[in-house]
């Protein structure tokens, strides 16, 4: 399946836009998405950390993804 992933902050600069399309297997997990993103965009792996959010919640590696999920790359936050 193809998923659209939102990107913010420095992640937007790394992937070259505010969304990026990623091709995954139909039963892909958050961990597999992370691995795919790091392979396509090695600069992501050089960040202090990055999280994946699914439907506005922080997700963990074994969470399953659906095509219609709202998925986002969350680089280290720095509000306040």
């Amino acid at each position: 399946m193809k998923v659209n992933v939102l990107a913010f902050g420095i992640a937007k600069e790394i992937v070259g836009g505010s969304t990026v399309e990623v091709e995954l297997t139909s039963d892909a997990t958050v961990g597999e998405l992370r691995a795919e993103l790091e392979e396509q965009y090695p600069r992501l792996a050089k960040l202090a950390s990055f999280m994946i959010a699914v439907n506005n919640e922080y997700a963990v590696a074994d969470n399953a993804l659906q095509q219609r999920d709202e998925i986002a790359i969350i680089p280290p936050v720095s509000g306040g």
């Binding site: 913010f8 902050g9 720095s78 509000g79 306040g80």
Partner: peptide, 14 residues
Amino acid sequence: TIDTLKETVPIWKR
């Protein structure tokens, strides 16, 4: 509130 905001809220500053 401010300490946790700085750790968890998805806001970024440049």
